[in-house]
Write a protein that binds this DNA or RNA. Structure first.
Lengths: 188, 188, 188, 188
DNA sequence: GATGAATGAGTGTTCATTCAT
DNA sequence: TATGAATGAACACTCATTCAT
């Protein structure tokens, strides 16, 4: 496998176990069965590894979102599909779910690193969708900016919550309950 | 002032600015205008300071909640009042809002420290109130455990979000929107 | 009891348990049931406490030795009595035995503190006695300086050794064996 | 040179000068002209350095002793040769002599570290040799355990004593006097 | 004299990062 | 690219000592 991806996977695993600050670069290298020095060929520094974990998942999200944009479906339905996609991803990636929840703060950990480019964060995308949804009277006249974020982190935190609370079996049922909650919360 | 409280205030301020791991105990001591050694008279170690910040606010919450319990009001109304109380607290304490949001993970940062006693966390209390609310058909038959947590961290994160997003002026309006969102989301 | 003596006893106990460097002045104060500050009324600093322990025992030895000097006995017999006295002292004071053995290095721990006055150390006294003994042909023509020290630390170390090796019951028998060893070693 | 050995030599030098507790790991690193961090690649902690100094010398002793065991010589003669070997070693290594004397307490400083394996300490070996010596009526019926230790620390302390007392020139003469003392002390 | 809260210099240890091989 | 020994700045924590009460 691509070494950068190998490092990302090991880092996700170790950071999920130990937390970012307690994770040693050496531990990541050990898990990936490579030398510490090698990590620094693919990453500028330790923070860069965490950024990459967030960016990778963000990129996957954006790709999925772009596919949805081409569909002829209502903005609210789009949001629901995006959340469903996120839940599926997190179910297949418990370590990642934990890292995104524990180490994430706002869109990206390091404000400095920001989004590299001018691409929007998921909360911003949700905001735009909510605004479109408002225009077609699908939902109430809510503060789209605030709810863009609220829906984003409710999704992120709940995906992790359901795992630690051992709801594995009822994962999808609980998830649909959450969707109903959100939709009821904002619909006209 | 009580030295332990003095340290708590300085720590909250510095941790809000720098983040817990980048905060040096020396910085806290400097801000409090005491010697480093003094910090260690009142706190076992650096983690203990963060725990105390969480515990202090938790204690205030619990005290407020216990006062509500004596009132003759519906469980859902109690939850709303608790959230309102939290928002007021966070408005008066932006640094604390940031620390609770950024450094908090689940109920308490350090799982080991647990709740000292057997006192319930706020999510647990919300859960119980939701169950009572379900019984009187005030709300739908939702997963009370999950929504106990969801309401808890929506409250926590949004209180912080509104501050960084500069909604100061519309703070209460935005907050009432959030309450409506939650109530609509779970009501029958 | 005299507070300085109280501190000396507690210090001896704690230092025997923990070793001098691992002993905290606070621990000594706790054991003596006084405040730390009080320790510093009677002692200049921590080292001073250890010095006092050594000096106290040294003073007792010197007093005993001076009594012997007045007796009409051979120098070799004097040495034997001094060693016997030391053994009895150590048997009654296991903690002190340990401290003298573990923390003692040469006559006094702190070279700077030296003997306060110009009083001789026990090795020096043994040296003089050995010289007298040589003159009366009681013992061989040995290096009195070296054997003054050798007999001194054999006495000190063996007194402690017999305790940790659990020879309590055979303590005096073992001790007499040691005396025989020394006398045989140096006699004509 | 092997870095671990380099550190051992610098540590021996500095500890001899300053004493173990006053020695800073940084001082050792400076003397060895390496970074502090490097010390911790080769040693678990500061105590571990002292243990290694003792172990290294102990290993040399054991190697010498094992060579003696193959010789057809009396047990008492073996002990004499071992002591002679020790004296030669200490003469060539005054710093080590000082460290072994000042920082040594019983066989090894840290009881926890024990002998790594089940190898015997030198006092134990002396004890066995004394027992063999007793069997062939070479020496009196002495307490072999006690005298194993007595001979061990008389050897160790005297080797150091002769150096600080400036007997360099008469070192071997004094040493032979000590051997005579010991042999006379225990022979039939 | 007695107290013990406060001090702050001092130090062991860690670990992200580098770079010669 | 890959390695991993070496680096050294950084930091949590300790504890002898002081001094206002």
């Amino acid at each position: 496998m691509n070494k950068k991806e190998l490092i990302r996977l090991s880092a996700t695993k170790i950071i999920a176990e130990e937390g970012f600050y307690k994770t040693k670069v050496q531990d990541i290298a050990d898990d990936a069965e490579i030398a510490v020095g090698t990590v620094y060929i693919y990453f500028k520094n330790k923070d860069d590894i965490l950024d990459y974990i967030f960016e990778s998942q963000h990129t996957k999200m954006i790709e999925f979102i772009e596919k949805q944009e081409k569909q002829e479906i209502s903005p609210l339905e789009k949001i629901k599909r995006i959340l469903r996609y996120h839940f599926t991803e997190m179910e297949n990636n418990p370590d990642l779910a934990k890292v995104l929840s524990q180490e994430g703060t706002g869109p990206l950990k390091n404000k400095e690193s920001e989004m590299k480019d001018d691409s929007l964060g998921v909360p911003d995308i949700f905001q735009r969708m909510l605004e479109e949804s408002k225009e077609i009277r699908e939902i109430r006249d809510i503060d789209a900016e605030m709810f863009g974020y609220v829906i984003f982190f409710v999704g992120r935190e709940t995906a992790y919550l359901l795992q630690i609370k051992g709801k594995k079996d009822r994962y999808y049922k609980a998830f649909e309950e959450l969707l109903t909650f959100i939709v009821n919360g904002i619909k006209v």
